[in-house]
């Protein structure tokens, strides 16, 4: 951004005065932004925290660490980590194929990658269940060899892979597209194998984007509800995800329990949000420097 349009070249010795506010409308737009944000997001979210402390820390802790709830944390976090890891590998492969190779239908593949963002989660949930149920296209193939997916924890993993897939592809793809080929050329001319070049030159460049995509997919998976509940089976201690625990507490009018679990999830979301922001800052700094060369 340059201000040369406005200020006639200042003397080098004179420190430029604080930027003048030229554009109008800061007051009303900022006011509305803060009002709308507070009303719809900040005040309602703070209600959860205030409510959760309302019945004393003992009640909060008992509700947040009940065995059935802890089992749901383990399942939600474990399945989400695994799904994000699987997506990390296949998302990278897909992004690589789309950027680096030519194949028929490439444009279509590129456009459909975003399907999980656009397809309502309930639709994804019943479609995956229909596929993996005993009489579904894939269930028919898998059940005879002893792999049951629908109504088992494995089904949760499948649903979480579905909804997390675009995150990795869409964070890695632009970095891969903007990457200069000179580094790879230099590595090759210095005698590196293709795999060495990938591992030592390409992968470090992609790392911030990969981690950002991983964190985004993980965060989304932990909070996911719609696509999971149809395929999960929802057995206590076995296949109940954390968001479902909140719903079942609400259905029993157990507001203390629901609020306690929601507080745990919110704190986790905040931590991940900070981590993602940090990663994105790192990523854009890294890529910005690469671009300036």
């Amino acid at each position: 951004m340059n201000t040369a349009v406005l200020s006639p070249a200042p003397l080098a010795a004179v420190r430029r005065p604080k930027r003048l506010r030229v554009l109008p409308g800061f007051g009303p737009t900022m006011g509305f932004t803060l009002f709308y944000l507070s009303l719809l997001v900040l005040i309602p979210i703070s209600a959860v925290f205030i409510k959760s402390t309302g019945h004393g820390f003992g009640a909060f802790w008992a509700a947040a660490t009940a065995p059935r709830v802890v089992a749901s944390y383990q399942l939600s976090f474990g399945a989400s980590l695994l799904a994000a890891s699987i997506n990390l590998l296949f998302g990278l492969i897909l992004a690589w194929c789309i950027v680096r190779y030519e194949f028929p239908g490439k444009k279509l593949v590129d456009a459909l990658i975003d399907l999980p963002f656009a397809l309502p989660t309930a639709v994804a949930g019943i479609a995956l269940t229909a596929l993996y149920a005993g009489n579904g296209w894939l269930g028919k193939l898998l059940e005879p060899i002893g792999i049951k997916v629908a109504f088992k924890p494995l089904g949760i993993l499948v649903a979480l892979i579905f909804i997390g897939l675009p995150f990795i592809v869409r964070t890695v793809q632009p970095v891969l597209e903007d990457m200069e080929t000179e580094l790879e050329e230099a590595a090759a001319s210095l005698g590196a194998h293709r795999w060495q070049t990938f591992r030592l030159v390409v992968l470090p460049t992609l790392l911030p984007a990969l981690l950002t995509g991983f964190a985004l997919a993980f965060a989304r998976a932990v909070g996911e509800y719609g696509s999971v509940i149809f395929i999960a089976g929802n057995l206590p201690m076995v296949s109940e995800i954390t968001p479902l625990m909140i719903i079942s507490k609400l259905e029993q009018y157990d507001y203390v329990g629901a609020t306690a679990i929601a507080t745990v999830m919110l704190v986790f979301s905040f931590v991940l949000l900070l981590a993602i922001n940090g990663l994105q800052a790192w990523s854009s700094k890294r890529n910005g420097q690469d671009g300036k060369r």
Partner: peptide
Amino acid sequence: DLPFSVSPVVAGLIYVLL
């Protein structure tokens, strides 16, 4: 950006609490 990182179920719950 906050609403994106909040689970949809929690998003519903906050309005029930209010």
